[in-house]
Amino acid sequence: MPFSSRIYIRRMGFSVVAALLGTLFALPLVWFFFAPFNARAELGLAIPAPFTFANFTTVFQNTFAMQALFNSLVQAFGGVVLVGAAATFAAYALSRSSIPGKSAVTYVLLLFSSVVSGSAAMVPIFLIVSAAGLIDTHLAVILVFAGGLLPTAMFILRDFIDAIPRSYEESAMVAGASPLQAFFDVALPVIRPGIVVVVVWAFVNIWGSFLIPFILLRSDSLMPASVAIYSFYSEAGTPIVTLLAAYSLIYSLPVIALYLFVNWKFGFRFFGGIKS
């Protein structure tokens, strides 16, 4: 007998508990995919009968909410480009150059980054943005997000770049490449998987964030989807579950699409250029 009965019982017990926990967490997700297609959806879980797209039709007629999805894209895209580019250059410099005290700089930035994008700093941020005359612009949202996310992005990327041998760029430079050529031809393609991680992480962060755009923006025409979702509450403050569910599903699609795209396009890693 390779297994004693005690081990069997223990394993069965573990499986049962794991299955129960899994079900518990799966239920809201099941609701999330069922409710949008149910004309009489409530907070309880129910199989749509009849299956309908009526909720979506109503949501699509809400121009404010549709404009908000576009605004979310603008803000997330802007923020991601800024964070991705700046973090790549900064992290590369921090990893490869010999600036005295560079690790201290990284840690201090990392420490303060959680403060900058947190609610504690909302008042100073508002004052700064206001003084800069940027209140109620996409740019304000993009800049504040970039500032908040950059240190962590730099930290992640610097670790990633540290793990990449310098001999890649060194061999390029010995072969006749300028430092800039060595960076773009050799280093950047090798770092790309790390940049993709940072980009996805930044996108998800900006896409789901509520507080910063809510405070920095005034006009309905600029609000992102995370704020516009409140247009599916009745005036009494109760959610219109059918529309909310449909909008939520639409709202989450770009993030899912991004994950799938990245997994398809970059989900592999390179190995074999370096013999260790």
Binding site: P165, S167, Y168, E170, S171, A172, D185, V186, P189, V190, F270, F271, G272, G273, I274, K275, S276
Partner: peptide, 9 residues
């Protein structure tokens, strides 16, 4: 180079 440093991409 000792580790060859071939460009993996």
């Amino acid at each position: 180079f000792q580790d060859y440093a071939l460009y993996p991409h």
